[in-house]
Design a binder for these strands. Structure first.
Lengths: 148, 148
DNA sequence: AGACAATTATTGACAATGCAACTAATGAAT
DNA sequence: ATTCATTAGTTGCATTGTCAATAATTGTCT
């Protein structure tokens, strides 16, 4: 009879937290060194690159980035200053603004996606087979869905 | 034949990252409101509470917290000022210091563990059965091990 | 023993982020 | 149409964390 240590929700969460934190830091370093952008910037550019017309309202952006709106404002300020995105007033709601990926942003993103994709594969993907990767995806998704 | 969308390592990592980020923020809010400490403080106190003699060298602490040493110095400064931990010079290596859990820190930790444990159960554990929790633990551990 | 490299922790300067307060615009109710 | 609550975004201030440089101590090599 195999001896199995009891794994509590606390253990499970704790391991998820440390693993994700470590990897994130690693990915951030790679991106910074090879493309000159942080993982947070990457996240912004990625979402914009998939958004319709490569643009998102500040509000949506801040939600998907898990940042406060003010945090998003500051972040977009910096990336805009670097020329990778720009702002445009929203025609349909004059309170709002769009953050829009610039051509330069797209170019940076092409390089970054390659580098970062390889990095994820090397540090994360290569240690799990495809079923396991699916499991991680589905379990994490289930937790996320369970929290609204 | 069930149609399954292909899940890449990138999808899997992305979901893990957002789920963990969201939960962490939620946990942080709860701890802050109910015990008056952040999730980071909690992490420090937790590790100290399990460490031999409830003390750890700054170096070890910073590693397990995924923080730079200078970040750990600042963090320990603040928690020390709050009276939850204290510093003590290391006898065996006069360059070093221990961070040590105080009695007050232990008291705070007793309350925090209960609150935070419940929170983890409610937001994470309740959405996964015990096998799934074990899976998350083992998969995340495998990734962590694969990265040194 | 003496010289030099490596390690531990801290500090100053600065970057990033949250909170609360604010402005401008929208929408809903009368 | 006017009023009032709500929403989008930005800003000032405080907090938190990083990076590079520093001081003190230890270890190594001859």
């Amino acid at each position: 009879m195999p001896e199995k240590k009891k794994i509590t929700a606390i253990d499970s969460w704790g391991q998820a937290l440390t693993t994700v934190s470590r990897l994130l830091r690693k990915f951030d370093t790679t991106l910074q060194e090879s493309v000159g952008i942080s993982a947070v910037w990457y996240d912004v550019l990625l979402r914009l690159s998939y958004a319709p017309n490569r643009r998102m309202r500040m509000q949506n952006l801040s939600e998907s980035l898990i940042l406060t709106r003010s945090g998003a404002t500051r972040l977009v300020d910096r990336i805009e200053k670097a020329g990778l995105i720009c702002r445009e007033a929203a025609a349909e709601d004059r309170r709002g603004y769009y953050a829009i990926l610039t051509d330069e942003g797209r170019a940076v993103m092409r390089r970054a996606k390659k580098i970062h994709g390889d990095d994820i594969l090397a540090s994360f993907g290569s240690h799990l087979d495809s079923d396991e990767q699916r499991l991680v995806y589905e379990l994490m998704r289930k937790v996320a869905d369970g929290n609204g």
